[in-house]
Design a protein around this nucleic acid. Structure first.
Lengths: 193, 193
DNA sequence: CGTAAGATTGAATGGCCTCAAGGACAGTGG
DNA sequence: CCACTGTCCTTGAGGCCATTCAATCTTACG
């Protein structure tokens, strides 16, 4: 798969579900009036494209190239002779529900700095890598995607980044790479009282 | 089951999942600092209590009495000799994912009046009943629950109700029953531009 | 009738958004 | 090699919607 490619659109017939081995996918929905929400990012280990009835109910685009494995939709319903795969996909669906509930807490209950700190912690856990004594994260997605994921504007996201930088919590290397300088402070910021 | 009863708490071992035949359940999660989010209401036809691993990840309380059918967790994983039930529960899980995505749009993208109008439309569709020429809804849950579901405060919910009442969109009969006077206006309010 | 819980209303603050301008960076072509 | 261009990101100023804090009103029920 290549960057910018669309795997499927909302309303498409759901023939496959997709398992992300590497790279990054983006699931979005758009409201009639053009407002957009990033439902989730497909990180390595995620399974995306669970159908509603016969159809997909989000758009799915490739943000960073990687290895994507397509499974026929039927294996989700009956095992189709591969019970191990069936159990894995079912588990992914249940994890998906749980992850979305976490996302709820973020959207509804948290302030902008709390949202962004939580976001960074999840990414660090899932895709962070060591860099000297610190942990670094590549933000393959653009600010717009982060904003639409957290329910903020790109200006607020940008301001929050600046704020965290001034506080010595993170450092930037280019616009896409973030180094976590103080994970304790980050965690504190994610659940401020 | 009786009103006020707790079916399970976050962290409980997940032995069963519950199918709502009638009545009303409430799924909540609480943040360390006490802030609360109503993840979903369990309306007739819903299935709640999908586990994450071995445990539940929400609290579940009974808001209105009704008939609740408990299924052993195992039937979700393997059919346990009842493929029809297995398929029904799997379908419910996929619908749940879809419904939560709709909820996202509401939490992140909509204003207070839009949220409340959307909420009423869903309830009217699911549990509304005819009353003369109009459709009526019983709000078994309290204002606090509605507020925590929509990501608002009870004051804002109350103000929005008053606003809709003054606009002639709805009428109240007691605090718990709402009559929809103008469904077109309600729909317009739910997706204002 | 009296009490307590829930719901409504009011006034003022504040956090995020909107609108607008300026800066960083990569890619392109002269 | 260097303007040139477009995209993305950052920063600033002002306004608005939902919140917060506080008081009053309503309802359910003993």
């Amino acid at each position: 798969v290549t960057v910018g490619q669309t795997l499927f659109l909302e309303g498409d017939e759901a023939r496959h579900i997709y398992e992300v081995r590497s790279g990054l996918l983006r699931l979005t929905r758009v409201l009639e009036n053009g407002r957009r929400q990033v439902i989730a990012f497909g990180l390595p280990g995620d399974v995306v494209g669970f159908p509603k009835g016969e159809h997909h109910h989000t758009d799915c685009d490739v943000i960073a190239e990687g290895e994507i494995v397509a499974h026929r939709r039927e294996v989700l319903e009956d095992g189709l002779g591969d019970p191990e795969l069936h159990a894995r996909l079912l588990g992914a669906a249940l994890r998906e529900i749980s992850a979305m509930q976490d996302h709820f807490m973020m959207l509804a209950l948290k302030s902008a700095p709390e949202k962004f700190a939580s976001f960074l912690m999840v990414l660090a856990e899932r895709t962070g890598y060591g860099l000297g004594n610190y942990t670094a994260i590549d933000l393959a997605m653009k600010r717009t995607d982060i904003a639409d994921f957290l329910g903020l504007t790109i200006e607020t996201v940008s301001r929050t980044i600046t704020q965290f930088r001034n506080a010595g919590i993170i450092a930037l290397d280019g616009a896409q790479t973030i180094v976590l300088l103080d994970q304790d402070a980050l965690e504190a910021a994610s659940q401020a009282d």
